[in-house]
Amino acid sequence: MALEAKNLWFRYDRSQPWILENRNLTLERGERVALFAPSGYGKSTLSLLLAGYLQPSRGQVLLEGAPLPRRGVCPVQLIYQHPEKAINPRWRLKKVLEESGKLDEQVLDAFGIESAWLDRFPRELSGGELQRFCLARALMSGADYLICDEISTMLDVITQAQIWNVVLEQAEKRNMAILAVTHNQNLARRICSRVVDLSRE
């Protein structure tokens, strides 16, 4: 029961440099791993590959031994660095959430999503508020693996602590695995049980 990156290589084009070279990573179900590396080392690219948004140039991403499903809801959900770019700017937020199914009041409450926000457009909310929607959308889809690419970097520290406490609680309850990309070593120490440093491998 794991999400595995096996001998992953990636570049955008033959004329471009390699971003990832022969990278291996295993994320066991229920495990919480922090992914460290200086910027430009391919952390976000690895996140995109693990969630199935990019196809590796060589190597494989395996979910419980098989390739990621090409249809339906992917059990690996990616939460991005920039929530404003992960939400359709012309949809009201209710519609954004409903894309992953029926609204789950418990999840909305846990993230402190107020009912008044549902009728608003994304540009009328702050980045921190939008990130709660992205997380709620992923959790409502029933994800088993959550790839968190700097998800709390744009949040104030109180909201960061609130959101991570909810994510950790939900992860525990659903036996969900978390891969957290972060530059904050203090945060990594708080939320993760294992650290992978791309620059030291």
Binding site: G112, E114, D156, V157, I158, T159, Q160, A161, Q162, W164, N165, N184, N186, L187, R189, R190, I191
Partner: peptide
């Protein structure tokens, strides 16, 4: 003070509410 205490290195304790 609540901001200070919510830092991961200082307790990671958020206050309630929004």
């Amino acid at each position: 003070r609540a901001l200070w205490r919510a830092l991961p290195q200082n307790g990671f304790q958020p206050i309630d509410g929004f």
